[in-house]
């Protein structure tokens, strides 16, 4: 589904991603873990080109999206993204947050979009907040709305950038539950996370990134039960 070849990203002198070759298959739930500054968020943000790679190519279903001629906006419609800070639009109601993009894309009429939005809000459990503004709901509800907003465009893959890191502890569960349900429905997902429990129980593959390279990856059982890389062992001993 997504293939990355020689992906390199530098910020000035700083090498953040170091010639990464990687593939994410359709239906996979890939969890990316690593220490802060390891490049995990940058890797995820490169996948939909929110961050422009310094070098390398990215292919989505065989189509090179790093090609300057690629229609980026159309490509991004196929890749939903969920941010650490939710990034709901504060000047729009929850419902409007949901319908803005699909209506602008002429994917749906306003009425169709609202119907779909209500169904998705129901699925993530915040249908009763549709007419409220983002400031009027809790962090966990905001993140669930953000997930639903991304799902409005029927993406083929969902990218999660530390989706629970900005949440109060008691709200983490409700967001992870939505993500679990999404994974169970067969959605392809790439998740940057510190939630080891989630990675262990939901991921089909866990990857450890450190200093701009993936150092180890495996099934959750092997990854957590029998880690090989010394840096990964040290990391796991600190977070588990």
């Amino acid at each position: 589904m997504i293939t990355v070849k020689g992906l390199t990203k530098t910020f000035g002198e700083l090498l953040v991603l170091d010639h990464i070759d990687e593939t994410i298959e359709k239906g996979e739930v890939v969890c990316i873990i690593g220490p802060s500054g390891s490049g995990k968020s940058t890797f995820l943000r490169c996948l939909n080109l929110l961050e422009r790679p310094t070098e390398g190519q990215i292919f989505v279903d065989g189509e090179e999206i790093t090609d300057p001629k690629c229609n980026l906006n159309a490509m991004r419609e196929r890749m939903g993204m969920v941010f650490q800070q939710f990034n709901l639009f504060p000047h729009l109601t929850i419902l409007k947050n949901m319908t803005l993009a699909p209506v602008l894309h002429k994917q749906y009429t306003k009425a169709q979009a609202e119907e779909k939005a209500m169904a998705l809000l129901k699925r993530v459990g915040v249908a009763d907040k549709a007419q409220m503004y983002p400031s009027q709901i809790s962090g966990g509800q905001k993140q669930r709305v953000a997930i639903a907003r991304a799902l409005m465009l029927d993406p083929e893959i969902m990218l999660f950038d530390e989706p629970t890191s900005a949440l109060d502890p008691e709200m983490v569960g409700e967001v992870l539950d939505v993500m679990k349900e999404l994974a169970a429905s067969g959605m392809t997902m790439a998740v940057v996370t510190h939630e080891m429990g989630f990675a262990r129980s939901v991921a089909s593959r866990v990857m450890f990134i450190d200093q701009g390279k993936f150092r180890e990856q495996n099934t959750p059982e092997e990854f957590f039960g029998n880690p090989q890389n010394p840096r990964l062992r040290e990391f796991l001993s600190k977070v588990l």
Partner: peptide
């Protein structure tokens, strides 16, 4: 983040 959210939804 507002700009990034907009762009990630495929808006120009």
């Amino acid at each position: 983040g507002q700009n990034e959210a907009g762009r990630s939804l495929g808006l120009s």
